[in-house]
């Protein structure tokens, strides 16, 4: 299945958001959104990914 991860097209086999994080080496403290909707950490296992989904995985960054 092809998804957009952090703006980049990506071919993945994961079926859920939690599995996607595992597959992409992002299973750590992050915040996630799918198709511009926030997905809390405890809901990631229940969110099924669809072809073309836009997934955002964010971490802490410097800010003013």
């Amino acid at each position: 299945m092809k998804i957009i991860l952090n703006g980049e097209p990506r071919e993945v086999s994961a079926q859920t958001l939690a599995a996607l994080l595992d597959e992409c080496g992002l299973s750590r403290r992050v915040a996630t959104a799918v198709n511009e909707r926030f997905v809390s950490a405890d809901a990631r296992g229940t969110v099924d990914l669809q072809d073309g989904d836009r997934v955002e995985v964010l971490g802490a960054m410097q800010g003013g």
Partner: peptide
């Protein structure tokens, strides 16, 4: 301290900063 959220890469830079 003010901070922000940005796209996290495989390098784990966000976690180190946090």
């Amino acid at each position: 301290a003010t901070v922000s959220l940005r796209r996290e890469g495989a390098d784990g830079a966000g976690n180190a900063f946090w």
